[in-house]
Design a protein around this nucleic acid. Structure first.
Lengths: 121, 121
DNA sequence: TTTATCTATTGACAAATGTCGATCTATGGC
DNA sequence: GCCATAGATCGACATTTGTCAATAGATAAA
């Protein structure tokens, strides 16, 4: 299909096998890369369960207690927490020698909107 | 923390640094693995844009037209489509020699619910 | 300051992932 | 049957990811 691209708002007959794609604003390459980063942060069972653990707690949880919930070492858990921190799905706060983690409700609330954006709804 | 786990519904004082975690039904290991598979399928910019492309089209789109929207070869696109098919995010249908793809609205509609489940909301 | 504790980071390694070229399969037309 | 086309699969390779052990940094107590 040579004539119609996502960037061209004009609907053009392709002369091929498919009808043309409607060409209103699409998910850009940069936008897709951002969403992919978010999903990548969630693409691990341990991180899903860490998020769930934090979400289920009224209070922030320190790393040592998170470690106790999983059959992984402290460095592995810290590694997963860093990935969740980098995309701002969790927030960290120091109290003495302890680091306390909690979910970032603001960031995760935007999640259904992301799905709607991708699905053009 | 040795006393309180997610599986123990009794709230126990830990004598450590954190309050115990509320112990109503949590996201299980198997459930987390399933969610992670779903997110893994979305953890790539190309697949995000393929989904968006399909969602924006009134009609199913054949592979050759999808290929024309990306700077990737046909095997790479087929590979991504297989990953999206395996988690049922897209559906495929043959018409002659062409394979037509479309989004699976049912599966993707469950997405916000997944987020709520993980976030205990 | 010395020591102990908690957490982050580093480096190394195995495993998984993305991409491409080449090949195979399936369908339709001759 | 034979050929052409669309698409899936395979094999190889480079890159990324997950894990762990070891180490470094940061804080508090003595």
């Amino acid at each position: 299909m040579a004539t119609a691209t996502l960037e061209q708002p004009i609907v053009v007959s392709t002369g091929r096998c498919c009808p043309p794609v409607a060409a209103s604003p699409d998910v850009s390459e940069a936008e897709a890369a951002t969403y992919a980063e978010w999903f990548k942060a969630l693409a691990d069972p341990t991180r899903i369960r860490i998020l769930n653990l934090l979400a289920r707690s009224e209070e922030p949880i320190c790393v040592c207690d998170i470690v106790d919930h999983f059959p992984l070492g402290q460095p592995a858990i810290s590694h997963h927490l860093k990935i969740l921190r980098d995309v701002r799905f969790v927030l960290a706060e120091r109290r003495g020698t302890f680091m306390y983690y909690r979910v970032n409700a603001n960031c995760l609330a935007a999640f259904p909107d992301t799905a709607r954006r991708i699905l053009n709804q």
